[in-house]
């Protein structure tokens, strides 16, 4: 991930991938706190991570870069991520159509079987794949 822009400001990192999914990592930083009393990470950084992880998963599924825009994105915050822990986001594209990519994912803070968040969204393609 780049060190500039919004992703850079959050400290978002590449983590891992398989044929089916992309994983990114959000290292714990005090600057990401949204609830100062409980010292909990804000949900916004997790939103950004899942948007990015699922977006990359679309290009992984296509096997090429294709410009796209997020049409809608929903996150269920199942439980707060534990204070001080990195959060990992795993995104996948489960369906491609001519115009729309359907994605989903989970975020967890160490145990993928005990996620902190679930997400679902759609991306709309805004141009042809490159290289075509």
């Amino acid at each position: 991930m780049g060190m500039v822009g919004h992703n850079g400001a959050l400290g978002l990192r590449w983590c891992d991938s398989s044929d089916e999914w992309i994983e990114l990592r959000l290292p714990w930083r005090d600057a990401l706190i949204g609830d100062e009393a409980a010292r909990l990470m804000a949900s916004g950084p997790i939103f950004t991570m899942m948007d990015n992880a699922t977006s990359l998963a679309v290009w992984q599924k296509i096997g090429a870069f294709r410009p796209q825009a997020t049409l809608d994105f929903r996150i269920d915050y199942i439980r707060p991520a534990k204070s001080g822990r990195d959060v990992i986001g795993r995104g996948e594209c489960y369906r491609l159509t001519r115009s729309i990519a359907f994605v989903r994912g989970i975020a967890h803070d160490g145990d993928a079987d005990d996620p902190v968040a679930h997400c679902a969204g759609t991306f709309m393609f805004t141009g042809p794949a490159w290289p075509s």
Binding site: H6, A42, G44, P45, F47, T48, D51, N52, T70
Partner: peptide, 13 residues
């Protein structure tokens, strides 16, 4: 362009 995540952060806040 703004990052969609930054827009989401503003909306949440």
């Amino acid at each position: 362009f703004l990052h969609g995540g930054a827009i989401a952060g503003l909306l949440e806040m």
